[in-house]
Nucleic acid binder design. Structure first.
Lengths: 355, 355
DNA sequence: CTGAAAGCGCTTACAG
DNA sequence: CTGAAAGCGCTTACAG
């Protein structure tokens, strides 16, 4: 019943769900409709217009499930992200999705909490994603099991951020190098004792950073155990502003206080800086502080916070390349690990060590 | 060839892609496998175990496309998000996805840039999503066109945050009320002149807030044009810290400076606060400042920033309810608009007006 | 438990 | 351009 439609009299339009119905509606053969949809040659412009107008009118969209059953590729990539509360992870997610779309892929994004992991992976597999990416930190044993499965099945994958997963194609910030650069910077400013804020715990990324510190200090003939100090064990572990405050309060009270502080992230660094300042200590005149992640807030503090930039653009570009190489050369099985060099962003929170 | 597998000799396992192959591999009938997969009664435990072990071994997952072709519901919800750079939007996204998963839905998440909009919607439709949610602000005309299509087709939808879209089921913060509460708070502190920071522009959300200010001022017998002041026009429009700084610099220089400042968001408020302080003005002794969104950073400044909390949990809960009602009662066509009451979080950045 | 058959919504030759 | 047919990977009766 092709009658003119009125905008605000909501007449429930019968929903068209198949090319068969749609072809009947337009008055064409199913084959012809299919040819228009797939932009095949040998069709009159008039026919093409007729079909496209009808599609716009009815809102008909071909069923993706039937399409893919017929062998059309899904052009889907599954992205598992640990959580959406840490800004750097979200920026990686956003960038990766944009880059994938520019390459013709849609993304299936799932936040992976510990209970839902297996379910999400099964969903991705049943949707026949062409690749899977992980952003963040996941339970190591479980992740290794999944990766082994992907390798077995020849399913392209990439692990972003979590270094050290067996067989996994990995893109990760060179955290050891980041710490080396930061330490050289502080060293050149005359600092010889270092407070560590939140830099503890079992995460591989933290251990990588401590290893970087250790190696660099060793080059200067110092023992990490001797010249660094951590008070993390005194408080319930958190990664936020408040945790930084607590640590700074304790550091402010001990006699041989370190002159430079290296924090797990920007939040802890800023919390510590506020607390130190609140107690009358000047930054950087009395002590230096550095963060990690180079978030926007680093520019919003007084003084601005020296921090390590994760080079997120380079990271997701590398991740996309790693995926595409696997898609292009499905038989190449060598595991790829790409380290992204960090960038130390020096601001005013780090300065000469007090005399 | 069911031989024992060695962990690290990567023998390329032939990938099983259909129940037919899989049934052959296990040595059972296709029908039997299908029954195990669908947990139908009347199967020996031994058979069930055999199938499940083989699934774990081979990594076989039934093809979702064939499943849904057979009429199984997709249990998919499409989520369009404006961008992933504003923390409140990300928190809504994360919360909504979690809530949907708890209700048995998977999410298709897409960041909608202006060029890709139509493509994303088509993708959602072709994937036969059971509902579509929008988070953020989109081009009004385009969004209204999409919504009209959904209404026409009886596809459940919800628009989160963007108020005023015709026919759209909407969940949105009561921004007028937020401004009313904030103004009453400042009024009680003795403020009678107000600087607006970034509160301008065509966005409906901004206009809603200005309307709220207008109405409340009118109740006190004041004219909004007379007692508020905006300098937004002097600078290129941004929504960040730096923009706040610029505005504060100008406000600091004018003679009859307002005593209270109402910012578009927390970032602008904090930027302004820093600049005022940098110029020797004390907050809140010399002037009061308030933000919007109540982000974590509001606690990280000195003094802490008074801000409006968007009540994100309540928002996404309402959004989920709105979707579920539509799914449950597909014939009910009345448009639903739910306003979420905000919560004013008072901190130290607002205080008595100077005498 | 098995096996053969129909059908979901598509595409793709093939004969007209 | 049309129309009939095969087949993608499933589920679901149905007869054994």
């Amino acid at each position: 019943m092709p009658s003119s439609r009125k905008a605000d009299k909501p007449r429930p339009v019968p929903r068209i769900t198949s090319t068969a119905e749609f072809a009947r509606h337009v008055g064409l053969a199913r084959t012809t409709v299919s040819r228009v949809l797939n932009q095949q040659p040998g069709l009159k412009q008039k026919t093409i217009d007729r079909v496209q107008r009808a599609m716009a009118e009815t809102g008909f969209t071909p069923n993706a499930y039937a399409l893919h059953l017929k062998g059309k590729r899904t052009a889907l990539v599954g992205i598992c992200v640990e959580n959406l509360l840490t800004p750097p992870a979200v920026r990686k997610l956003a960038g990766l999705q944009r880059l994938l779309r520019e390459n013709g892929y849609s993304s299936l994004i799932e936040v992976l909490d510990p209970r839902s992991g297996q379910k999400v992976i099964r969903h991705f597999l049943s949707m026949r994603v062409e690749a899977i990416a992980f952003i963040g930190h996941f339970a190591e044993a479980e992740l290794e099991r999944w990766i082994a499965g992907f390798v077995n099945q020849g399913l392209p994958h990439v692990v972003i951020d979590q270094h050290g997963i067996k067989e996994a194609n990995t893109v990760t910030l060179d955290r050891a190098k980041a710490m080396a650069e930061l330490l050289e910077h502080l060293w050149a400013l005359g600092h010889r004792t270092f407070g560590l804020l939140g830099l503890s715990g079992p995460l591989r990324s933290t251990q990588d950073r401590l290893r970087g510190l250790d190696a660099t200090l060793a080059q200067h003939g110092l023992l990490i155990a001797a010249c660094t100090r951590s008070l993390d064990h005194l408080y319930e572990r958190r990664n936020d502003f408040e945790f930084g405050r607590l640590l700074a309060r304790s550091f402010a009270q001990i006699p041989d206080r370190p002159t430079a502080y290296i924090a797990l992230n920007d939040e802890i660094a800023i919390g510590a800086m506020h607390e130190f300042q609140h107690r009358g200590l000047a930054v950087p005149a009395d002590l230096s502080i550095s963060g990690f992640n180079n978030q926007d807030i680093c520019e919003m503090t007084t003084p601005g916070l020296t921090s390590v930039d994760q080079q997120i653009d380079a990271t997701i570009l590398a991740a996309t390349e790693v995926l595409q190489t696997q898609i292009k050369f499905p038989t190449r099985t060598k595991t790829v690990v790409r380290m992204i060099p960090p960038a130390l962003i020096i601001r005013e929170s780090t300065g000469r060590a007090p005399a």
